[in-house]
């Protein structure tokens, strides 16, 4: 399992007109790893992630995700990945069960598989009796946990999480991370962005983006050592302060 890359990025860039959102980044993500993708607002994290998911066309550079090329085989990548966007993306006017059925179905799961997945998911998230509740009526923390569980309902090779715990209370965040660990234990590679530095410490490796470039990439422990910092918070502040680009 060690050092088997599932994401390979080389000199990837994205320009919007004259603005370079992502500037020549290169990195690998290994199979089964929890990869933290950090950076201040506007550093280019979401743009980079969208390119890897096949939602945005890169301007230059190369990238392979789950063995497929992001330029030509983006529709193949989509079968292999899960994605949870910054914005909440379940259908609010559908019930929990209907959301599971829809998202599992479009990835080609059979009715029997869907039923089994629904049962497991309901059990794991303690949603017994709530299956027929409209998603709209649930608190944010629940929604995020359900959204994550649905993002990996088809057992993808990699799941991309864009600030999945933004605005969620500390207890739910902890529960959310135990779901992430569980998924990781099942062999799903986790690619996650976050602004919470305690969460960064849960990752196997983290990269820190500043002004579209990756300024640091290592294990949290190594990063703290290199920057002679007591916490990831300090590491982040040291690096992010160098930014010239204004956050959004």
């Amino acid at each position: 399992m060690e050092k088997e890359p599932v994401i390979t990025v080389r000199n990837l860039s994205k320009q919007f007109g004259l603005f370079t959102a992502v500037d020549n980044i290169s990195f690998d993500v290994n199979k089964g790893e929890i990869f933290g993708f950090l950076g201040a607002n506007g550093a280019g994290k979401t743009t980079a992630m969208r390119m890897l998911c096949g939602l945005s066309l890169p301007s230059s550079g190369t990238a392979r995700v789950a063995g497929y090329d992001v330029y030509r085989e983006n529709e193949w990548i989509k079968r292999k990945i899960g994605y949870m966007s910054q914005r909440f993306s379940l259908y609010e006017d559908l019930t929990i069960r209907e959301n599971i059925r829809f998202y599992a179905g479009i990835y080609g799961l059979s009715d029997i598989q869907i039923r089994e997945k629904t049962r497991m998911l309901v059990e794991k998230l303690h949603l017994e009796g709530k299956e027929k509740t409209l998603v709209r009526e649930l608190p944010l923390g629940w929604k995020q946990k359900i959204a994550f569980s649905i993002a990996i309902v088809h057992d993808p090779a990699i799941v991309f999480l864009d600030e999945p715990t933004a605005g969620v209370d500390p207890i739910t965040r902890r529960e959310f991370w135990s779901l992430i660990y569980e998924a990781s234990a099942r062999g799903i590679t986790i690619f996650v962005t976050t602004h919470y530095m305690d969460e960064a410490e849960y990752c196997n490796r983290v990269s820190i983006m500043v002004d579209g470039r990756i300024e640091a990439l290592d294990t949290p422990a190594a990063l703290m050592k290199i920057h002679q910092a007591g916490s990831m918070d300090e590491v982040f502040l040291q690096l992010a302060r160098k930014a010239v680009r204004a956050g959004d």
Binding site: C53, G54, L55, E75, K78, R79, I81, Y83, S85, R87, S89, L90, Y103, I106, Y107, G108
Partner: peptide
């Protein structure tokens, strides 16, 4: 976006 990132 969730639809676009799926194989639909």
């Amino acid at each position: 976006e969730q639809i676009n990132v799926s194989p639909i």
